[in-house]
């Protein structure tokens, strides 16, 4: 796992289903500054592949993804 980054904002989308986690991530990334890190907590099994695909498309950087029980924790760095 990568160096634990300083988290600027935490987005809790536990209990939301596709496309909720991606939608909320897209909104939340705009609320932090470039270079800052967003922590996403999700229970949707599609959250990991979807937020990875979203990051590839939008150019934001995934720093770390961890499965903690039923919760996926994703750290995203705002790239632009």
């Amino acid at each position: 796992m990568s160096q634990e980054a300083k988290i600027a904002k935490t987005l809790d989308v536990k209990g939301m289903y596709c496309p909720g986690p991606v939608m909320e991530t897209a909104k939340a990334i705009k609320q932090i500054n470039v270079g800052e890190v967003l922590e996403v907590l999700a229970t949707d099994p599609a959250a990991k592949p979807d937020i990875e695909a979203w990051a590839r498309r939008t150019g934001h950087q995934i720093l770390d993804i961890q499965q903690q029980g039923g919760v996926t924790r994703i750290l995203v760095k705002r790239a632009k």
């Binding site: 596709c18 496309p19 991606v22 939608m23 991530t25 897209a26 909104k27 979807d50 695909a53 979203w54 498309r57 939008t58």
Partner: peptide, 10 residues
């Protein structure tokens, strides 16, 4: 679902 997922992904 497709419209919002696509819009969120740029």
């Amino acid at each position: 679902i497709l419209a919002s997922g696509a819009a969120a992904s740029g």
